[in-house]
Amino acid sequence: MGRFHRHADGTEHSHDGPDNTDPSTGDHEHGHEGHEHGREGHEHTGDHSGYATGTERVAVLERIFGENDKTAAANRASLAANGVRAVNLMSSPGAGKTTLLRETLARLKGEARIGIVEGDIETSLDADRLAGFGASVALVNTGNGFGGECHLDAPMVGSALPRLPLADLDLVLIENVGNLVCPAEFDVGEDARAMVYAITEGEEKPLKYPVMFRSCQLVVVNKIDLLPHLDFDMDGFLGNLRAVNPGATVIQASARTGEGVDAWCDWLRAQLAVPR
């Protein structure tokens, strides 16, 4: 099978077999101009059959998320030691997480002491929008020179937790980076996962991003104030959601008008009441 790869100058190709490969070494020539490996002794191994003899195979059987999950367990333990519940809030960009959080802070002020971990690729825009509600906000900028991580992982959340006064909190809401793919893969030490889904995203997304939709206990179907203006088929969406995650709780809401936000706050209250 060919191996697709790109070089530093942006050229890309795949190797379709051993035609230009010396099976004894795996060395091969690239027939196009404009790139060089820039380093002596660099070998690409386009055809692995040359390694069938003379190699040793060692068993590893190690989970790639192992390190992340270890840190997630440490985060969970540190939250539990302080009597704090954590909810990982995920969505596409623009689905309304930050607006929902603002409404949540306004409603739960004086009732629950809330800290926010705010994942934002480069800016403090979202954290700024949450200022003034009495919540502690720890910002995690995920930009790292490659355009930013597309998710929060357990070490990132672990680095943010000490910047929150955990001993004085009841609830930590982790606002993940807007993305329907990567955040689902990373346990950050949360007790529960919730999604904000905007009806402007269409009915089919649960089928396209089943891992994300399966990973959540709750889906807040947001922006329902726009229902009269869209062709959104709520029953179709709910059917798709049930197909991938039959057990998910669904709350229809509009963070803008406030409809359904109390039901979401009740769900958060129920999380706080779950005995450890």
Binding site: R39, G41, E43, H48, Y51, T55, R57, A59, I64
Partner: peptide
């Protein structure tokens, strides 16, 4: 599943161990 199951290691005659 998402795991590293095994590694293939090169036979290592003297002087040919990469760089």
């Amino acid at each position: 599943e998402f795991m590293v199951t095994s590694l293939d290691l090169a036979a290592e005659p003297a002087g040919e161990t990469g760089t």
